[in-house]
């Protein structure tokens, strides 16, 4: 099949294509779906400020 002799290689050739399609379909369906659990803004602000400090050291 597909000019490939070994069934395991044919299988993985198709699995690569199918898993890429799976990722694409997932993305289309979930493009705008956010995390069900939202962290408080204060927590995010604190995290972002600390992240800026870490980055500034680089």
């Amino acid at each position: 099949m597909l000019g490939i002799e070994d069934g395991w290689v044919v299988l993985v050739y198709l699995l690569c294509i199918m898993s890429t399609i799976l990722c694409l379909v997932w993305g289309i369906i979930k493009w705008n779906v956010d995390d069900p659990v939202q962290e408080p803004d204060e927590e995010i602000r604190h995290w972002a400020e600390e992240e800026d400090r870490v980055e500034s050291e680089l």
Partner: peptide, 11 residues
């Protein structure tokens, strides 16, 4: 949302 969007792009 960004994590979900990374899946098709990464794939």
């Amino acid at each position: 949302k960004e994590l979900n969007r990374a899946i098709p792009i990464g794939g």
